[in-house]
Design a protein around this nucleic acid. Structure first.
Length: 230
DNA sequence: CTGTGGATTTGCT
DNA sequence: GCAAATCCACAGG
């Protein structure tokens, strides 16, 4: 009797999902502050086939148009459109967009409503459901971890994220199929470099990665400085 | 290992 | 019409 009540009272996400759900306030600072703090956190997708999760090892910040520092590389730079409107709304939501016709990229929205900063998630270390993630990518079950979710569109493919199903989801909702969680993995140092794959504002140091981590995207080792983060 | 081109959504000129 | 926050197949060394 008492056991049943405990089970009912338990949060639906608590049993199978690792760590603690990030709160809304985590996402209220500007993207250049949220981005390094997302390193080491878990991006968790609960699917019918099971829980897929990866540890964030690489991110990029994109600044909203209200910012003093202009960021013409950001989708929100010219104001809201049907595609980018979730960036202008409540923080802690997923902004998923289609790129080059065939792929998707996933961002985390930041800042209070009306301010349109966001963080692009660029690479994950697969943690849960690794075999299914490899399968989603068309790779062998025992493929090397570094090839499974290293790249913004690769990680969407590995986790099964699409614009129609996941754009606008609340990442802080206990009942959401897509969440950001903290399992206690401590990150004290971040590598800071310029962003990858953009044509504008190429000089801004807004890319953050776990130094030396094998799952960070990119062939070359980009030059950058290491910074302590708290 | 490096370089090149194709796939084909979305938004701006 | 074309460029974009990409990835992959394939060619050549």
């Amino acid at each position: 009797m008492e056991e049943v009540a405990q089970v009912v009272r338990r949060r639906p996400d608590a049993a199978e999902n690792p760590g603690r759900l990030l709160r809304r306030s985590f996402f209220h600072p500007p993207p250049e502050r949220v981005a390094p703090r997302l390193l080491g956190k878990l991006l968790v997708h609960s699917t019918r086939a099971g829980v897929l999760a990866g540890r964030i090892v690489e991110v990029e910040a994109y600044l909203g148009p209200h910012n003093e520092q202009p960021d013409p590389a950001a989708h929100s730079h010219r104001g809201p459109t049907p595609r980018n409107r979730v960036i202008f709304e409540t923080a802690g939501h997923a902004y998923v967009y289609a790129i080059y016709g065939r792929y998707y990229c996933m961002n985390v929205t930041c800042e209070p409503e009306g301010q349109a900063g966001c963080v692009l998630v660029r690479a994950l270390e697969p943690v849960l459901g690794v075999a299914q993630m490899a399968r989603n990518r068309g790779l062998a079950i025992h493929a090397p971890l570094r090839g499974i979710a290293s790249g913004p569109s690769r990680l969407c493919q590995a986790l099964g994220l699409t614009r129609t199903r996941h754009n606008g989801l609340d990442l802080t909702d206990p009942s959401s199929p897509l969440q950001l969680r903290d399992d206690g993995f401590a990150v004290t140092v971040a590598l800071v470099t310029t962003r990858i794959g953009i044509r504008h504002a190429v000089e801004l140091p807004l890319r953050f990665a776990l130094p030396g981590h094998g799952c960070v995207s990119g062939r070359k080792s980009l030059t950058g400085k290491c910074v302590r983060i708290g």
